[in-house]
């Protein structure tokens, strides 16, 4: 997966399907439309391990609006809403 990521198109994790695997390219909080300020959202994402180069996989999703999602980040699992996951750009 790691060496294919530069050939894949970048997309926000918030749009990815269940089962998606990829690598974080960068964080872009201003596109997420979260209620948090950009800096706050970015800080929180980093604090939960969403940093550039981390491998992510969408393991599960909720029933209503396929939201929230359970994301494997390296070797931990984090639940986030798709709205906040829009800030995580993956490929």
């Amino acid at each position: 997966m790691t060496n294919t990521h530069d050939t894949r198109r970048e997309m926000p994790l918030g749009l990815a399907q269940c089962g998606y695997t990829g690598v974080i390219q960068h964080l872009s909080a201003k596109d997420a439309g979260s209620a948090l300020s950009d800096i706050e959202l970015e800080s929180r994402l980093i604090e939960l391990g969403f940093v550039e180069g981390a491998r992510v996989e969408i393991l599960h999703e909720g029933l209503v609006g396929r939201d929230p999602i359970a994301v494997r980040v390296d070797n931990i699992t984090i639940a986030v809403r798709r709205r906040e996951a829009m800030a995580i750009i993956v490929a």
Binding site: A35, L36, L41, R44, A79, V80, R81, E84
Partner: peptide, 10 residues
């Protein structure tokens, strides 16, 4: 108050 985002370690 900003609605809290749901971010939780499972």
């Amino acid at each position: 108050y900003a609605p809290a985002p749901f971010m939780l370690e499972l």
